[in-house]
């Protein structure tokens, strides 16, 4: 997003929905102001001439870190399900999702 583009109320509600966050109606305006301030701060970067700078997706100057395709032991099913609130038939049971 470019600097100076203000966050609208709809933006806040949309992003909140995507993130499954519930923002009480009387706080939307406050969040709107906070998000705008953050964007504005980040937008400072675009005041610089960065045409010679490669985009950085990672702070380390490292590439090609991968592992051999050799199996290691997995958790037991009991361990895997230890934190499941409602296990069933060896699986994580969750509320129905659209099929």
């Amino acid at each position: 997003m470019e600097a100076g583009v203000a966050i609208t109320r709809e933006d806040v509600l949309h992003v909140a929905r995507l993130a499954r966050l519930e923002i009480p109606a009387d706080q939307v305006e406050e969040v709107q102001g906070q998000l705008s301030a953050i964007l504005e701060a980040v937008g400072k970067v675009s005041e610089l001439d960065l045409s010679d700078v490669e985009p950085t997706s990672h702070p380390l100057d490292v590439v090609n870190a991968w592992a051999e395709d050799e199996p290691r032991p997995s958790l037991s099913r009991e361990e895997a399900l230890a934190n499941a609130p409602d296990p069933s038939e060896g699986a994580f049971r969750v509320p129905a999702v659209g099929s």
Partner: peptide, 15 residues
Amino acid sequence: RCENVWGEGPNTRTC
């Protein structure tokens, strides 16, 4: 590095 297998019992290849 969990095994990539098909047809095993549920949740036996997780980490």
